[in-house]
Computed example of a mutant assay.
Amino acid sequence: MSTRFVLIQPSHAGNVGAAARALKVMGFDDLVLVKPRWEDVLTRDETVERASGAVDVLQKAREVETLEEALQGMTHVCATVMTPRDFGPPTFGPREHLAGVAREGHHVAFLFGSERYGMRNEDVYRCHAALRIPVSPDYGSLNLAAAIQVIAYEWRMALGGFELPPSPGPQAADAAAVAGMLQHWEEALVAIGFLDPAAPKKLMPRLNQLFNRAQPTPEEIHILRGVAKAMAEAARKPKP
């Protein structure tokens, strides 16, 4: 299975660079330009700047004269459209269509039309499916690079996505630290008259369970000990 993104007659160099960036962050690198406006579009300053480090994708990208050349080896071709075409391929949302395509193991090409006029009907007709990104009915104008990013993301998710590295959560204090803090609190609560040591009932076991659920960090244990110390000191001060 392979994936190719095809830009038909792109007219803005910056969009080509942004497209390379969109592909790289989703793990794709096969970019083909059909008759771009600028012959040197892959090396123009604006292109390289907008690629933001995805220069390797630009270096691998190809420029061809015809769509036929761009689609060589592809077995499933998806147009991207704003409006369905009469007599054209069926139109789907990306998510609903791409999950099935991923299971079939096709070599997939995604076609994007010119920024100026979109995709021509004759180019849409040769596709197996048309993909329409769900957008607000009040404003559906997507920048070319933004549309490429959405499709690249949906296709990556259909292929299984990337496994995110585990997030290193805060380190919880150990049981000894919690026990020491609770003893400190017990002494402070007695000092302020909140806890009667002759009849403690279940206060301290309940506080123990509370802090076990909270899983305080060592820094938080330090703060709680500071609160207990301040309570005890306040209780020792003579009343006016």
Rank of each mutant, 00 (worst) to 15 (best):
W155R: 09
K229Q: 02
P170L: 06
D45T: 10
V124G: 14
A22H: 13
T217C: 10
L189Y: 07
T47S: 10
T217D: 09
K201Q: 14
A109H: 09
V41S: 11
I133W: 01
G73E: 08
D123K: 03
L210I: 13
V124D: 15
K237N: 11
R132P: 00
L7M: 08
L58P: 03
R156E: 15
V32S: 10
M181T: 04
E49D: 11
G105E: 09
Q72R: 15
L182A: 04
F28T: 14
A230P: 00
I223L: 14
A51P: 00
I148G: 03
V32C: 11
A51F: 05
L207K: 04
P216N: 00
L33R: 06
E115R: 00
V135L: 07
F194W: 13
G169L: 13
Q9H: 10
H107P: 03
T47H: 08
L164M: 10
A177W: 09
G180R: 14
P10F: 05
E115S: 00
A147M: 05
H184S: 13
V150S: 00
M74C: 12
P170E: 04
Q215V: 03
V32Q: 10
V124F: 14
H184E: 12
V6S: 05
P137A: 00
T217F: 11
E122D: 13
D29C: 15
D174L: 07
V34N: 06
A158E: 08
L195I: 10
A158S: 12
Q59C: 11
W38H: 14
D86I: 04
H106M: 09
A13C: 09
S141C: 06
K202T: 11
F87C: 05
E65A: 15
Q171P: 07
L67D: 02
E68N: 11
Q183S: 07
G160V: 15
P84K: 13
F5P: 05
A102P: 05
A173C: 06
Q183T: 06
A18T: 08
A176C: 03
T83S: 08
E154F: 03
M82P: 00
D29V: 09
E220C: 04
M204F: 01
P84D: 12
T83I: 10
M181Y: 08
A175Q: 13
A175Y: 06
G118I: 02
C78I: 05
M204T: 00
A102L: 12
R120V: 05
M1K: 11
M231G: 00
M119H: 02
A145K: 00
T75G: 06
H106Y: 14
N208L: 08
G17V: 03
R213P: 01
K239S: 11
F5K: 10
L111R: 08
D123L: 03
L131I: 06
K24D: 14
H106V: 09
H107F: 06
E65H: 14
S114K: 01
A70Q: 13
Y153C: 07
E187N: 10
V178S: 02
V81G: 05
E46Q: 07
A102I: 10
E187Y: 02
T47F: 09
V55A: 12
R213F: 05
R132W: 04
A173K: 03
L71D: 12
R156C: 14
R4A: 14
H76A: 07
P166S: 06
R85A: 11
A175W: 06
L164R: 09
L210F: 15
K60F: 13
V16T: 11
G14K: 04
F28W: 13
P240L: 04
G169H: 10
A175F: 06
